[in-house]
Design a protein around this nucleic acid. Structure first.
Lengths: 221, 221
DNA sequence: AAAAACCTTACGGAAAACCGTAAGGCCTTT
DNA sequence: AAAGGCCTTACGGTTTTCCGTAAGGTTTTT
């Protein structure tokens, strides 16, 4: 079983439950941090001390306060970890249940497990730890559909950039100018119209305002 | 000090921290529930047993699952409590930090204290319990501005309803029809235009899409 | 290499949003 | 009761969005 675990979570009260799960699994070398930057420091320090962590359990959202942080979110922490210590296992433990987000974290960021905080959270944390230790992936049932390929909506970075600009107040002509100056193609108003039409159909949105609202709800922008 | 406390929170792990705070205050008669309906049952039962609760600490959002619930949120639970047992004190303990929400809970729903989950959450829960016991109100510093009148942006339920309908895809004529059928006044397209113009200025939004995006970011809709 | 399919762009008309102006109703002030 | 202020509504003109059509270019198919 894992020997040394790091928990990163800004709500101190949640750690306790996770710690008790770890204790039940016979893992007693557990350290906790409330800031992403502190997590990085602990990880580096542990390696220097020849006693590296072999599992990190982290939340996604960290409230920002007066302390300046280089890494402001769990996402950034995970990206950092997997770039520098790819062998270090990571389990996300978050209330976030948006499929898009889960898909990104598992498929792109290479997170090893994704557990939704909820009634069964601690039970699933337990399962996740066991699975990850066996080099398998674990995702909470309520969001496991995020990984099924058939739900692929074929929306790409261009679509996101387009709707993102609209949500910032640009009109279609403005987005066109923005795309031209940033060398993003296609950039004509006509093409932008066409793409928006496609997106409106895909998202069953009645107009751009509706589209932006729906995509914000889905966490895409 | 309070003698008997009920904690309502669907994430079992959070309760532990609160329980330890209560223990430190010498309160040992603590019961926990994970569903709002169970909270109601416990409250009624305790009164029948001549040992009523004198404080309820509750979360706001309860994940819904297979169990059918009459009360689906902390809001509904608080409304129920204050309607039927106005002398029973209520403290909200939630990650929610939207001012609009806090204002409603304190001023309209008559909640006795509002504590944001966060790094200082347990410290503030402690302060809140003491204040409430002294028949005072407590609100976490980060959201205390919700109660100050000067920061009143003068956006009311009508504004929220208006932008909300737009975010659901209705155009201005559609919102007008909606307002007419629901007896909401003013309902003419012209008035809706005027109101939107005011909101756009207040929120520094370039158009309705931008306005909806900003208000969603602020958690107003 | 010709044909077909696709992408990008342009254009024009209908619908909706945007913006200023103004009329009528209601309430308060004097 | 008259005057003034505020709110609701109506209207007209400009801008933007929406939607269909079509031309020109590139890639894929045959």
């Amino acid at each position: 079983m894992f020997k040394k675990v790091l928990i990163a979570d800004d709500l101190g009260s949640i750690n306790q439950g996770v710690t008790s799960v770890l204790a039940a699994l016979g893992i007693n070398a557990v350290e906790q941090v409330q800031y992403c930057d502190d997590a990085v420091l602990k990880i580096k320090r542990a390696i220097l001390d020849k006693a590296p962590f072999d599992l990190v359990i982290t939340d996604l959202s960290f409230k920002t306060d007066y302390r300046e942080q280089k890494l402001e979110s769990g996402d950034a922490l995970i990206t950092f970890i997997k770039e520098n210590y790819p062998e270090l296992k990571v389990i996300v433990y978050s209330v976030e249940d948006r499929l898009q987000r889960v898909r990104f974290l598992i498929q792109t960021a290479k997170t090893n497990a994704y557990v939704c905080k909820g009634r069964r959270g601690l039970i699933e944390i337990n399962q996740a730890i066991i699975k990850v230790f066996q080099n398998e992936c674990f995702v909470s049932p309520q969001v496991s559909q995020a990984l099924s390929q058939k739900s692929n909506l074929e929306i790409d970075d261009y679509d996101i950039a387009l709707v993102n600009q609209l949500s910032h107040g640009l009109d279609q002509k403005g987005v066109s100018r923005y795309f031209i100056t940033n060398n993003i193609s296609p950039s004509s108003v006509s093409s932008i119209e066409k793409r928006l039409n496609k997106l409106r159909i895909q998202f069953k949105a009645d107009n751009v305002t509706h589209l932006v609202a729906k995509m914000k709800d889905l966490g895409l922008i």
